[in-house]
Amino acid sequence: MTEDPYEDLKISKGAVVKPRTTLVNKTGSWRSEKPIIDHEKCIACGNCEKFCPDMAVKETEEGKFEIDLEYCKGCGICAEECPVKAIIMEEEEK
């Protein structure tokens, strides 16, 4: 009989990582333009939050929408989708 190749087989458990750990990666540094919300114009419809692919726009406890520039990549979707044009994109300075 030949040796059983499965006798001492060790099954790897694979790699397990902790949830939500990409938060260490501050993608705000990618930005070339930054969004600025004019809270006077804002009607708090929430479109900016709804369409943000980076979870960088959030409604704060006061019911205002604010942008977390630590993560905002500056794609400009929020400014484009704002129905009252309350968000402008401003070029980042070096």
Partner: peptide, 26 residues
């Protein structure tokens, strides 16, 4: 103050700006 720890799909992922698939994931 942005409560990222409550999200089920979190910021800091490396998808391109304006990614439709990242929005889908959220």
């Amino acid at each position: 103050k942005f409560k990222h720890e409550e999200d089920l799909f979190c910021s800091g992922h490396r998808a391109c700006p304006g990614c439709g698939a990242a929005l889908t994931s959220k």
